[in-house]
């Protein structure tokens, strides 16, 4: 199965490629684009990036596996990343993560059976002054408390 992005995606990748003196430089943005459309970086996405940028598949796979933001497996509708690094940990981050695990019944790296939420841990998210912090699909939620996390997860799970 070959995969190609939407027309908008095609246009976008053309623009991105034009920004750099080498096609290879568009590797990270192209992977991001594919992930935005598919939800994760599938084998087909890697094939597409490798074709479009004329890169060996092993190179693209090497890039995907180096960085943490590319999901190599399918993920839930929402991805919740809880910061586990020191500044957050010092002000309750550990408890927040425990609570998320208990409430969702999954461990980091897993997805709820209903496919709604994937729970992950993240390293320092540059929001240390307002910890504990997590991101939901790239949006920051700061100064977390058990109550606010309950409300957040309930909202995500009750969404259609």
């Amino acid at each position: 199965m070959t995969w190609t992005p939407s027309a908008a995606g095609q246009k976008r990748i053309d623009e991105i490629i034009a920004r750099y003196p080498s096609k290879m430089a568009a590797c990270l943005p192209a992977l991001r684009l594919a992930q935005e459309e598919i939800g994760h970086v599938s084998k087909e996405a890697i094939d597409w990036v490798s074709r479009r940028l004329e890169l060996p598949r092993a190179h693209v796979q090497g890039v995907v596996s180096f960085y943490t933001l590319y999901h190599q497996k399918p993920v839930g509708k929402h991805v919740v990343q809880v910061c586990r690094t020191l500044s957050c940990a010092l002000v309750g981050g550990e408890r927040i993560l425990d609570h998320c695990q208990k409430k969702l019944g999954i461990r980091p790296g897993e997805t709820t059976p209903d496919g709604k939420i994937t729970l992950e841990t993240a390293e320092c998210l540059a929001s240390c002054g307002s910890g504990p912090v997590l991101t939901v699909d790239d949006e920051f939620v700061e100064n977390l408390t058990i109550e606010s996390i309950d409300a957040l997860l309930d909202r995500l799970r009750s969404e259609p």
Binding site: I46, P56, R57, A58, Q61, G62, S65
Partner: peptide, 24 residues
């Protein structure tokens, strides 16, 4: 394999102490 001989299908994957050398 890649730099000297131009092979396309052997790469380095992953990071930290779990760096993996193999095919995709």
């Amino acid at each position: 394999y890649a730099d000297h001989a131009g092979g396309k299908d052997l790469g380095v994957f992953g990071a930290h102490d779990a760096v993996y050398f193999g095919r995709h």
